[in-house]
Simulated assay, not measured.
Amino acid sequence: MPSIVSRIVPVYLRVIGANRTFVSAEGARRHIRERSLRPRPYGPPRLLRSDVSVSVDHSSGWPIYTLTPRGTARGNVVYAHGGGWVNEIAPQHWTLAANIAALSGTTVTVPIYPLIPFGTAGEVVPAFAKLVLDNKSRYGEVCLAGDSAGGQIALSTAILLRDEHQVKLPRTVLISPALDLSLSNPEIERVQPTDPWLGQEGSHVLTAHWRGELPLSDPIVSPLFADMAGLGPLSIFCGTRDILNPDVRLLVDKARAAGVSIDYHEGSDLVHVYPLTPTPEGRTARAAIIDRLRVALSPTRAHLPRP
């Protein structure tokens, strides 16, 4: 049974109307218009961790932030933030990225990618792949991580790297990833009444922008349609009160059948992106994420303190 705090989270999300962008087409269109007119700040909070330094580079056309831990760092994690491809990076993303840097002893790269209606999967995913390749030259081993919409970007990037560059990543971490942007899995209807956050009708509006000229079945848009054979290890976290959960289960089965190493954490009765929530289950998931990335990038290192 979920903790008391986790049982409060769905109530809180419904009270604040967290799903208003996703449950209706008009709500999604209104949100896109608002974010186009009044973009939200994306910079990191002033107080992250004292043992992590932050720098930013604009030479590629996007702001690319780098979080560097104190002391010797090994490898790199490229983190793709979530937000329905329409919302900017949130403080919870920055906190997780900083903890990964400090507690995994690695640099973390956080791209501030263009959002809809301006950005598309066809532009963003190849740019993430190029960033990973550049970072491999600079840091050595590189892992990918992402949540929700960022989970789609991360897995699509891993697939593109395998297919076009013959690169197999040491680990990709997916937190409640969007996998099939058609949202046509019939099991979604069963989960929808329990999900206080996401909805199909508004999501269809968002994904119509994000896919651009590509079909929904293109793995750059919907990574669930890709062949999984030859991918590096995957760590996946998803709650059962999340309409993305049915597709996550399909991914787990498909990847295992293809011989991919899968580390799957399903949160019973937990909400979308539960590892980012201020709950006991969230803390446990964050510790697992940090541990998996630490081992992938520094397999012989002694264990570092947990967050």
Rank of each mutant, 00 (worst) to 15 (best):
R301Y: 07
R256G: 04
R162L: 02
T68K: 15
S137G: 15
G82T: 06
P44Y: 07
D263L: 09
H303L: 08
E187M: 09
Y274M: 01
R46E: 14
D227F: 07
V23T: 15
D195N: 09
G282F: 05
S298Y: 04
H209P: 05
R74M: 10
R294Y: 06
I8M: 11
T106A: 08
A102T: 03
L179V: 09
S36H: 08
N135S: 15
R301C: 08
T284V: 10
I153Y: 00
R35D: 01
Y264K: 10
A97G: 01
F225N: 04
V78Q: 04
G17E: 12
T66I: 11
G140M: 13
A25H: 02
I262F: 12
R30M: 07
V52P: 01
V132L: 10
V124A: 04
P114I: 12
D180P: 00
A229K: 14
L179C: 04
A145F: 10
V54H: 01
L198W: 03
P170V: 10
N76H: 14
H93Q: 13
I289G: 03
E281P: 02
A158S: 13
Y264G: 06
P215S: 13
V23L: 11
W94V: 10
E281Q: 13
V78W: 07
G199C: 03
H303I: 02
S184I: 06
S53L: 01
R286S: 00
Y79I: 03
Y274G: 01
L206I: 14
E164F: 04
S55R: 14
L47S: 14
A149F: 01
D227G: 12
N245V: 03
Y274F: 14
P280L: 06
T284Q: 13
L181V: 04
I89R: 06
S59N: 12
A229T: 11
I220Q: 03
V221K: 02
H31C: 05
G199A: 08
L206C: 11
H272C: 02
W62H: 08
C238F: 03
N99W: 11
Q200E: 14
L96P: 05
F237C: 05
S137E: 15
A178M: 09
S50G: 08
T95H: 14
P69F: 12
P299M: 10
L251E: 00
T157W: 02
L234N: 07
V11Y: 13
H272Q: 08
S50Y: 09
R171D: 10
A149V: 01
L198F: 04
Q152L: 01
E189V: 06
